[in-house]
Lab assay of single mutants.
Amino acid sequence: QVNQQQLQQLMDMGFTREHAMEALLNTSTMEQATEYLLTHP
C-alpha cells in the first residue's frame, strides 16, 4: 500500500502512476522515491 499523497506528488512531478507506485513500494522516503525514479527511467 502506498501513501496516496506521496503518489500524487510524484505524479504532479510528471511521473506516471505506475512508475511512481513502483518507486514508493521500493523505497521508504519521498527523497528515495524521487531518486529511484530519476535513476530508473
Rank of each mutant, 00 (worst) to 15 (best):
Q1N: 02
Q1V: 03
Q1S: 06
Q1K: 15
Q1D: 00
Q1H: 00
Q1I: 03
Q1E: 11
V2N: 08
V2A: 03
V2F: 07
V2Q: 15
V2P: 03
N3G: 01
N3D: 11
Q4A: 07
Q4T: 09
Q4Y: 02
Q4G: 04
Q5R: 06
Q5I: 12
Q5M: 06
Q5D: 15
Q5C: 10
Q5A: 10
Q5V: 11
Q5P: 06
Q5G: 12
Q6L: 09
Q6G: 06
Q6T: 07
L7A: 07
L7K: 03
L7H: 12
L7E: 05
L7G: 02
L7W: 00
L7R: 06
Q8E: 15
Q8A: 11
Q8D: 07
Q8V: 05
Q8L: 06
Q8K: 13
Q8P: 02
Q8F: 12
Q9T: 05
Q9P: 04
Q9I: 03
Q9A: 10
Q9L: 03
Q9W: 00
Q9S: 10
L10W: 00
L10F: 11
L10I: 10
M11F: 05
M11L: 07
M11H: 02
D12E: 14
D12F: 04
D12Y: 06
D12T: 10
D12I: 06
M13H: 06
M13L: 09
M13S: 09
G14N: 15
G14C: 03
G14T: 01
G14R: 04
F15M: 05
F15T: 13
F15H: 15
F15R: 07
F15I: 15
T16F: 04
T16G: 12
R17A: 07
R17D: 05
R17M: 04
R17E: 13
R17C: 09
R17I: 02
E18K: 09
E18M: 06
E18C: 06
E18A: 05
E18F: 02
H19Y: 12
H19S: 14
H19G: 14
H19P: 10
H19E: 15
H19W: 12
H19A: 14
A20K: 01
A20V: 05
A20H: 00
A20N: 00
A20M: 00
A20L: 00
A20C: 08
M21C: 07
M21L: 11
M21Y: 07
M21V: 12
M21K: 14
E22A: 10
E22G: 10
E22L: 04
E22M: 06
E22P: 02
E22I: 08
A23N: 01
A23Y: 01
A23P: 00
L24V: 10
L24H: 09
L24Y: 09
L24S: 09
L24C: 14
L24I: 10
L25Q: 15
L25N: 15
L25I: 11
L25A: 11
N26F: 07
N26H: 12
N26S: 13
N26W: 02
N26V: 09
T27G: 05
T27E: 04
S28C: 07
S28E: 15
S28I: 03
S28D: 07
S28W: 01
S28M: 04
T29E: 08
T29L: 01
T29I: 02
T29S: 13
T29N: 06
M30P: 08
M30K: 10
M30W: 08
M30F: 14
E31T: 06
E31W: 01
E31C: 04
E31R: 08
E31M: 04
Q32Y: 03
Q32G: 11
Q32I: 02
Q32R: 07
A33F: 00
A33C: 04
A33M: 00
A33N: 01
A33E: 02
A33S: 04
T34W: 05
T34V: 03
T34R: 15
T34H: 15
T34I: 05
E35I: 02
E35R: 11
E35V: 03
E35P: 01
Y36Q: 13
Y36N: 08
L37H: 11
L37V: 07
L37E: 08
L37S: 10
L37Q: 07
L38F: 11
L38V: 13
L38A: 15
L38K: 15
T39Q: 13
T39L: 06
T39P: 13
H40M: 14
H40P: 14
H40N: 12
H40Q: 15
H40C: 10
P41V: 11
